[in-house]
Amino acid sequence: MGVANKAYKFRIFPTKEQEDFLVRTFGCVRFVYNKMLAERKETYEKYKDNKALLRKQKFPTPAKYKKEFEWLKEVDSLALANAQLNLQRAFSNFFLGKTKYPKFKNRKSKQSYTTNMVTGNIKILAGHIKLPKLTPLRMKQHREIPSHHVIKSCTVSRSATGKYHVSILTEYEHNPVKKEINHVVGLDFAMDGLFVESEEGKKAYYPRFYRQAEGKLAKEQRKMSNMMNGSSRWKKQRIKVAKLHERVANQRKNFLHQESRKLANRYDCVVIENLDMKGMSKAFRFGKSVADNGWGMFTTFLRYKLDEQGKQLIKIDKWFPSSKTCSACGHMHAALHLSERTFNCDCGFVIDRDWNAAINIKNEGRLILDLS
């Protein structure tokens, strides 16, 4: 049997005493992370010209600081241990060339900490969750965690609006029966509507939540810029702006979950292009529109929803000329401007440009799958 992971995120409502403990833990985790990073930075500067010696250097551990800083003993030791693992992961990614050199964390960074399940120290009770060194926290559990899922760790976080959440990572045996591929669909990314399906040219009709809220956001941000930074009025206004951003993010996520679920239930295989969204946003100056659509998040949701059912997501090469090729006769048009939204071929075939591209993406996917 294969092993898979799944996370469940729930809202928690700490009391004043519990909130104080969570805030202290966030601070301790940040403090230890920065201390270890400072030491690693010194080591890196010393041995950066000798990679072999640099790799042999040991990471400092949180235990090293507990004698000097007694208050570190008050919080969950597993949270501090995970800070060390996160730093090690950050350096590994840096040496592999995946990310930039790790940065120091400050109070504006994401406020969170992770603790692990060790000998039953995490328990889910009726409407509550028990975490190490904390009395049971009230939790709004809107969905059940299956009994065969084993809790591995929990990440407690605080949003910019002051809301607390716990993300429960579980592990379970997963061996889905591979689905026979009968229904295939191609999706072409659309700036104005998320995607266009190859089947009848259906569009997702993405509501563009950020664009809808942009005027209100600008107005509230102007108000905040005219206030004294750090004043009580500024803090209230900051939360107001954060709530608007949070609402947009939640609307987007909800929409993407719904659309990806529809596709995963309807088709056995979904074919998309392997797009570089960051590059597209810079090249075509569509940064806001690309970020608003959340195509990367959508494809992540789509992949795991298909995997759960033994179905497939196929990504074809981003240089495949899906927009320039006629889906009827196969002739490729060398020049096709972005402003041309209707595809006209010499063979007489006339179709919406994005729909034509979606059909070509589907056909390319079928070739990869070796389907007649």
Results as ranks from 00 to 15, higher is better:
Gly2Met: 05
Glu17Thr: 09
Asp20Trp: 07
Thr25Gln: 05
Phe31Arg: 02
Phe31Met: 00
Val32Leu: 08
Lys35Gln: 12
Glu39Trp: 05
Glu39Asp: 10
Glu42Met: 10
Glu42Asn: 13
Glu45Arg: 03
Lys46Arg: 12
Phe59Tyr: 15
Thr61Met: 05
Pro62Ile: 06
Lys67Val: 13
Glu68Cys: 06
Leu72Arg: 02
Lys73Ser: 13
Val75Thr: 01
Ser77Arg: 07
Leu85Asp: 14
Leu87Tyr: 04
Arg89Cys: 15
Ala90Asp: 09
Ala90Arg: 01
Phe91Val: 14
Gly97Trp: 12
Lys98Asn: 05
Tyr101Ser: 03
Lys105Glu: 04
Ser109Lys: 03
Asn116Thr: 12
Met117Arg: 04
Gly120Arg: 04
Ile122Met: 11
Lys123Cys: 09
Lys133Thr: 02
Thr135Met: 08
Arg138Pro: 07
Met139Ile: 12
His142Gln: 04
Pro146Arg: 01
Pro146Gly: 00
Val150His: 09
Lys152Thr: 01
Cys154Trp: 03
Val156Lys: 09
Ser159Gly: 08
Thr161Arg: 11
Lys163Glu: 12
Lys163Leu: 08
Val166His: 09
Val166Gln: 08
Pro176His: 06
Val177Met: 13
Lys179His: 07
Glu180Trp: 07
Ile181Val: 07
Asn182Val: 07
His183Ser: 11
Phe195Tyr: 15
Phe195Leu: 03
Ser198Phe: 00
Glu200Ile: 14
Lys202Val: 13
Ala204Cys: 13
Arg208Asn: 10
Tyr210Cys: 15
Gln212Gly: 08
Lys216Arg: 10
Leu217Val: 05
Gln221Pro: 09
Lys223Ser: 05
Asn226Lys: 10
Met227Val: 13
Lys235Ile: 02
Leu244Gln: 14
Arg247His: 12
Arg252Ile: 00
Arg252Ala: 01
Asn254Arg: 11
Asn254Met: 09
Leu256Tyr: 04
His257Asn: 08
His257Cys: 02
His257Arg: 05
Lys262Pro: 00
Lys262Ser: 00
Leu263Pro: 00
Cys269Gln: 06
Met280Leu: 11
Phe284Tyr: 13
Arg285Pro: 04
Phe286Val: 02
Ala291Trp: 10
Asp292Ser: 13
Gly294Trp: 00
Gly296Phe: 11
Tyr304Glu: 13
Tyr304Met: 12
Leu306Met: 06
Glu308Arg: 04
Gln309Asp: 03
Gly310Pro: 04
Gly310Cys: 05
Gln312Lys: 14
Pro321Asp: 08
Ser323Val: 04
Thr325Asp: 03
His331Thr: 09
Ala334Trp: 05
Ala334Asn: 08
Leu338Ser: 07
Glu340Cys: 04
Gly348Trp: 00
Phe349Tyr: 08
Ile351Met: 13
Ile351Ser: 10
Asp352Gln: 10
Ala357Thr: 06
Lys362Leu: 07
